[in-house]
Design a protein around this nucleic acid. Structure first.
Lengths: 167, 167
DNA sequence: CTATAATTTCAGTAATTACAGAAATTACAG
DNA sequence: CTGTAATTTCTGTAATTACTGAAATTATAG
């Protein structure tokens, strides 16, 4: 299913299997359950580790590597947010910033430069929001999860003071 | 650059060109500026339209199609959020829900079923937050953009009342 | 240290995706 | 209607990505 999520089919299957499994699994078990080659599973696990979506564990008296996912879905969501920010937003932003610095010496008032600056500012704001979510402690996040409204509450602050007593 | 964003290199180039261009451009102009085949540009524009990231315009006395992006970066960001939600989150959620309904008749207490339900709940909450952002009016969004803190403010509500006067 | 189990890397192949150029379709001017 | 400009669809090819099985590496038990 989740080939929409930037990872490919088999890596998605592997993650789902680990998430739904009560005990950690080793590579051989994943091969058998999903009918994939050993090397493919090795690659997939490496990718999942690079996303920090799986954790490596060792069982006593067994030298094989066992893998599992965090128990808490909130933790998983935050990891996903963090990694996607790191892979999508951050590099784009830093490239934009570099380009803007280069251009700063030349003409400063061109339409294109202005638009790049706008885009960069928006991304920086988005980045700050993401960082706030990422740095919230687990407890607060779980509270946020069960709260109905996020933006709505914040909005009441952004609007004129007359709205604030509504909260 | 933005091949990390789910679209390919050339479509990214096309979008950047349109975003940075003060006037709308027609397909032929895009071909020339980026040295792409006419058919490739046609495909790319179709894809950008399916993401609602470009708008089709017609100049009087010219039957060619001209394309431009919204002026406002906030609008662009919201469109992106909306489309990614539609393409990534929503289908995953509905698939999960369907599977859960199917399984409901059988054993209800299995670990895997419980985990699927947790994942589904988390996604539904994320979806509600996204909808709130998407449905906010432009003005409020722009205010939100210039505000420093999003989660921080909300958090003060999620915590015990003693924290609330701090706002 | 040696033997062996486990994992990773490598090299070749299969499958998918991106692209160009040609053909077909659509839309409009006259 | 007819002719022509503009766009889209189609078909083949190039490039990329996914995957396998074999070889190489790493790690551990004895």
């Amino acid at each position: 299913m989740g080939s929409r999520w930037g990872i490919n089919r088999t890596v998605g299957q592997m993650y789902a299997l680990l998430y739904l499994s009560e005990e950690p699994l080793n590579a051989e078990q994943i091969c058998t359950r999903l009918d994939l080659s050993r090397s493919n599973v090795s690659m997939g696990l490496k990718e999942l580790q690079s996303w920090r979506l799986v954790k490596l564990k060792h069982l006593p008296g067994d030298r094989r590597d066992y893998f599992s996912t965090p128990e808490d879905v909130t933790e998983i969501a935050i990891t996903l947010l963090e990694e996607r920010k790191k892979r999508e937003l951050d590099p784009t932003m830093s490239m934009l910033r570099d380009t803007l610095i280069q251009l700063d010496n030349d003409d400063d008032q061109g339409y294109a430069v202005r638009k790049m600056r706008e885009m960069c500012d928006m991304m920086e704001q988005t980045s700050r929001w993401a960082d706030e979510l990422i740095n919230m402690d687990r407890k607060s996040l779980q509270k946020l999860m069960v709260m109905g409204s996020l933006a709505g509450k914040v909005l009441s602050f952004a609007l004129p003071k007359s709205n604030q007593e509504a909260v």
